[in-house]
Simulated assay, not measured.
Amino acid sequence: MIEIPEALTLASQINNTISEKQIVNVVAEHTPHKFAWYHGDPQKYRELLVGKTINMATACAGMVEIKTGNATILVGDGVAFRYHKQGEKRPAKHQLLLEFNDFSSVSASVQMYGGIWCFVDEDEFQYLYYKIGKEKPSPISDKFNKTYFDKLISSQTMQKLSIKAFLATEQRIPGLGNGVLQDILWEAKIHPKRKVSTLKDENKEALYSAIKAVLSKMAELGGRDTEKDLHGNNGGYKTMMSKNNVGSSCISCGGIIKKETYLGGSIYYCENCQLL
């Protein structure tokens, strides 16, 4: 799933790979998918995009925003977005294919669920996560400082929540999802189920520092090794707490890495480092 580090990586790769290429053909909804979301009629994407030039891509929380003339393509967090050189094999199933004037292309394939939205008028595009992602500061940015974080976590309504619920639900920190959450909490030595109300000042300090440090490192290394980039390569950041590590030993203390289902997803934690 695309989260903050992957969105930043994809945006940078798009700018380096397909910027200034002209779109000469568009195939939308090639493979029907029950949980593929579009803006309006996807069959009109061709009319909207053909002849346009790829301008600039930017990360917006766990999404990638691509400007093409007066139109915007927004790729959501459940989408595999891949570049294909001339002659390279394309995926058999995809929900959007853009072909360029140099015979290269990009494809967007929805995995479990995801959005591929195309629109001209941003005010008419009513997607709450996009709006929040635009309004709230990225945790990697300077605007997401200790004062901002302290105000967020000290809110009375946050105290009854678990740390996972606080960090990765309701878009309190847009783009910070269940995937990057695991290593952040391992770095801070906090169990995902622990209540916000139980955190001491030193725990909050460790959590804030971990958010900044882990996300920055993930972005610097091109995303997590559990996710793929524009070219189909795994990210360079080696996850400490993920499906790849279950049952192995924690590199910090030697404890066993556990997996549980919690709040609609999986959590991974060290049985010794992250006591509940």
Results as ranks from 00 to 15, higher is better:
G76F: 02
G78P: 04
K67E: 13
K85Y: 14
D77K: 05
Q95L: 05
V75W: 01
K85G: 15
T72C: 06
G76N: 08
T68G: 04
Q95G: 07
F81N: 01
V64R: 02
L74H: 01
V75R: 02
H94I: 04
K93Q: 15
P91A: 07
V79D: 03
N70L: 13
K67S: 12
V64F: 05
G78N: 07
H94D: 10
K89D: 12
R82S: 11
H84S: 12
E65H: 14
E88G: 07
Q86G: 08
L74F: 10
A71L: 06
K93R: 15
K93N: 15
G69N: 04
I66A: 02
K85P: 07
G87K: 10
E88H: 13
D77W: 07
Q86R: 14
K93Y: 13
F81H: 04
H84E: 11
T72W: 03
G87P: 09
A80C: 10
I73F: 05
V79N: 02
N70Q: 14
K85I: 11
H94P: 01
V64L: 06
G87T: 08
I73S: 00
G69E: 03
R90G: 10
K67D: 11
G69V: 03
T68Q: 06
G76P: 05
H94C: 10
R90H: 09
Y83Q: 05
G76Y: 01
E65G: 03
H94G: 05
D77M: 12
Q95K: 12
V64Q: 03
I66Y: 00
K85T: 13
L74W: 04
H94A: 10
I66F: 04
I73T: 01
K85N: 15
H94L: 13
V79E: 02
R90P: 09
G69T: 04
G76R: 04
K67N: 13
K89H: 11
L74G: 00
K67A: 11
H84C: 08
A71P: 04
G78K: 08
V64M: 06
H94T: 11
K89I: 12
V64A: 04
G78F: 01
N70R: 14
V79K: 01
N70W: 09
L74I: 05
A92W: 09
A80R: 10
L74A: 07
K67C: 07
T72H: 03
E88S: 13
V64D: 01
E88C: 08
V75I: 15
T72R: 02
I66D: 02
A80N: 13
A71Q: 10
